[in-house]
């Protein structure tokens, strides 16, 4: 018997018991209980009469280094992290958006070097882009960029790399993150990343200037 049929039978039995109580039992309290049971039984039966459908969660994404064969694989993992564990999409949008609280990231992979993105994710206050400003009314729940490699988000180095790969791919840029880099960073966790000297006019160096 299907679960729905079982529940329907239980519901009908509850209603039946309620009817019997109301017909034959005189104790007021029991009668009220029978009445309540009937009401609840009818409610359940109505809910059961609608075609039933459960919603299964999408498959769990795991970051499995062994499965990464090409930079594109890396980018697709990065995309998933961007929209889940990394929490990037809680604030940022890709493309102009009406509800985003923080800067639009479309084309960011082409504008910025991967080293710079890495630094922005792990030391968000180190360099702040002078030219950035909010247009229009201030956002209702402004957020400050958190450290992505620390709690509570706590992405690993590989995960950050794959997000950068995704940002580059999304911007139409060739992915400069190599699969070997990821493997390397597994073996040597504290490989220090060289922050490229900033030459682009976009990256005016103005430390300690809050974005709002």
């Amino acid at each position: 018997m299907s679960e729905v049929a079982l529940l329907q039978i239980i519901g009908m039995c509850v209603i039946g018991v309620g009817i019997i109580i109301l017909l034959f039992i005189k104790g007021m309290f029991l009668r009220v209980l029978g009445f309540v049971a009937m009401v609840l039984g009818v409610f359940s039966l109505i809910a059961l009469s609608v075609p039933q459908m459960a919603s299964l969660p999408p498959a769990v994404e795991t970051f499995d280094i062994a499965s990464v064969k090409s930079p594109d694989d890396l980018a697709s993992i990065g995309q998933k992290i961007f929209f889940s564990k990394g929490q990037c999409a809680l604030c940022h949008s890709i493309g102009p958006s009406e509800s985003a609280r923080c800067p639009d990231l479309s084309g960011i992979g082409a504008k910025l070097s991967p080293e710079f993105i890495y630094e922005s994710l792990t030391q968000p206050q180190a360099y702040i882009y002078l030219d950035f400003r909010h247009d229009g009314i201030p956002k209702e729940y402004p957020a400050q960029m958190p450290h992505i490699d620390q709690d509570p988000i706590g992405l690993s180095k590989q995960e950050i790399y794959s997000v950068i790969a995704f940002l580059q791919k999304m911007s139409g840029e060739p992915i400069s993150i190599k699969v070997e880099d990821i493997m390397e960073s597994v073996e040597e966790p504290d490989v220090s990343l060289k922050v490229a000297s900033v030459t682009s006019p976009l990256n005016s160096q103005t430390p300690n200037m809050a974005d709002r």
């Binding site: 995309q79 929209f83 999409a89 949008s93 890709i94 493309g95 102009p96 958006s97 009406e98 509800s99 985003a100 479309s106």
Partner: peptide, 8 residues
């Protein structure tokens, strides 16, 4: 991924 995109 598709929430809140605007027509570019």
């Amino acid at each position: 991924e598709f929430v809140g995109l605007a027509n570019p």
